[in-house]
Amino acid sequence: MFYIGWISLTASGILVGILVFLWALKTEQFSDQGRARYLPLRDDFPMAQAQNPSKATGEVYALLFVIAIGLAAMATTVILTLMSLGG
């Protein structure tokens, strides 16, 4: 019957979540979402500015390459899985 323990652990986690959610409702944490978006922007430390902010840099292409490799690896895994199921 160990899973009684597991269920109580998981349930208490969810319970804490619900209690905090109620607190958030009470303190109107969900009321002013428009302003919340701006909260980090009070940071005024000087930062380097790109000459062309929208231009993709070498890093972006490198990361696209990483994504491509990642997807290829996952596709290979799926294919090998399907083959192993068939055989």
């Binding site: 500015q49 790109a50 902010p53 929208s54 231009k55 993709a56």
Partner: peptide, 14 residues
């Protein structure tokens, strides 16, 4: 979106 240049001008953003 449209600001990848800015993100990569800063090493932390990168």
């Amino acid at each position: 979106r449209g600001r990848l240049g800015n993100i990569h001008a800063d090493v932390a953003g990168k």
